[in-house]
């Protein structure tokens, strides 16, 4: 298991303005509150399927997403509630999607693993490990093709670094110098398998060396370190037209998904990472610098609690996805509304 980088390894905190720092804290807290509440709703049976929580990883999510422009496209894994919320998606629509309701971000066709908010340039969460990486390279390709100055960021886990398609994608991105940030959120476990049981080289950012691509490792529990690293990488991509890779070391507090009882990871290890919780450490920084007051924090917590309660109530009150939408959106240009497609044969005249 990798240790978090020592402070010397990380770059100095940027001179982010106080408003932005408060907003980042509030977003970390919103995601935590949202996901803890989602876990409760899963246990109640209101959320089905898989529910992968990023509790413990919020600093890496928020630091990366908020370092980008709102029009920079991002893709993610199936652990992506936080990315949507950090991009500004309506918590009501996110929760309603988890509930499988018509009012969800994807109308109930996606669920927890497949959120997308195209208007906010969040290009989706994907369920096959590594599978979304080349899509982000394609988004970067499109930016380059159109001579725009955006940057595509793809978020993937430590597990994806052993998928061949990541190597293919990094090679093409560097070969053609596409504006892409390969953001590896290393939560140190691919489901139940620790990085050092899966990877011959455990310093995953070194994958980039094979493609002559700049890369660095940052402390993923330190939101400002992540923010600075992604800010630098985005600037580099925009000005130098070169992709780069960032490995952010963080820790997932819960099991792989709600169906994982998490019995194999050592308690001592969990406790060590809990002590570095961004809600504790970042709060200490903000209070110490006078960026927030205790009253500010209370207000943020109260606001997030009511936002999440409102989202749950909205989801609960929303209509379920209409059966009539079953065959919607399979095609942009469909030739039948029949959900059984050609098999039903109603279109053949007697």
């Amino acid at each position: 298991m990798a240790d978090a980088p020592t402070p010397q390894d990380t770059i100095p905190a940027p001179a982010a303005d106080a408003d932005l720092m408060r907003q980042m804290f509030a977003t970390i807290h919103l995601i935590r509150t949202f996901e803890e509440r989602a876990a409760e709703e899963y246990m109640r049976g209101n959320i089905g399927g898989f529910l992968h929580l990023a509790i413990g990883e919020e600093a890496a999510v928020v630091g990366s997403v908020m370092a980008l422009r709102p029009t920079d496209p991002i893709t993610s894994t199936y652990r992506e509630h936080g990315q949507a919320l950090a991009r500004g998606s309506d918590p009501r629509a996110v929760m309603a999607e988890l509930f499988g309701r018509a009012t969800g971000l994807c109308g109930g066709h996606g669920g927890s693993m497949h959120l997308m908010d195209r208007e906010r340039f969040f290009f989706g969460g994907y369920g096959i490990v590594g599978g979304s990486v080349p899509l982000a390279v394609g988004l970067g390709f499109a930016i380059s093709y159109r001579h725009e100055d955006g940057v595509a960021l793809v978020m993937f886990g430590d597990g994806a670094t052993n998928q061949g398609v990541l190597m293919e994608s990094m090679n093409m991105a560097k070969l053609w110098n596409l504006p892409v940030i390969f953001f590896c959120l290393n939560n140190q476990y691919g489901m139940g398998t620790a990085v050092d049981r899966a990877s011959a080289e455990t310093e995953l950012f070194k994958r980039a060396d094979a493609f002559d691509m700049p890369s660095r490792r940052v402390d993923g529990m330190d939101v400002m370190a992540v923010y600075q690293a992604v800010t630098d990488a985005a600037h580099h991509a925009r000005t130098e037209q070169e992709p780069s890779m960032i490995e952010a070391i963080a820790y997932r507090y819960r099991g792989h998904s709600m169906s994982d009882p998490d019995r194999t990871r050592p308690e001592e290890e969990k406790a060590r990472w809990h002590a570095r919780d961004p809600l504790i450490t970042f709060e200490r920084v903000l209070l110490g610098e006078g960026t927030v007051t205790a009253e500010d924090l209370t207000a943020i917590r109260d606001r997030n609690s009511s936002t999440v309660e409102d989202a749950v109530a909205f989801a609960n009150d929303s209509p379920v996805a209409d059966d009539a939408t079953l065959a919607d959106d399979v095609y942009a240009h469909p030739w039948t509304d029949d959900p059984r497609g050609s098999a039903e044969m109603p279109q053949v005249r007697p």
Binding site: F123, P134, L135, V137, G138, L139, F141, V165, E168, S169
Partner: peptide, 26 residues
């Protein structure tokens, strides 16, 4: 070469790239 692009031998990679490019309107 911007519109007729030679690729490495990476079928999963460049098919995925094409999907991403298509998602953004190309």
């Amino acid at each position: 070469p911007a519109r007729v692009v030679d690729t490495p031998i990476s079928e999963a990679g460049f098919v995925g790239l094409g999907i991403g490019a298509a998602m953004s309107g190309l």
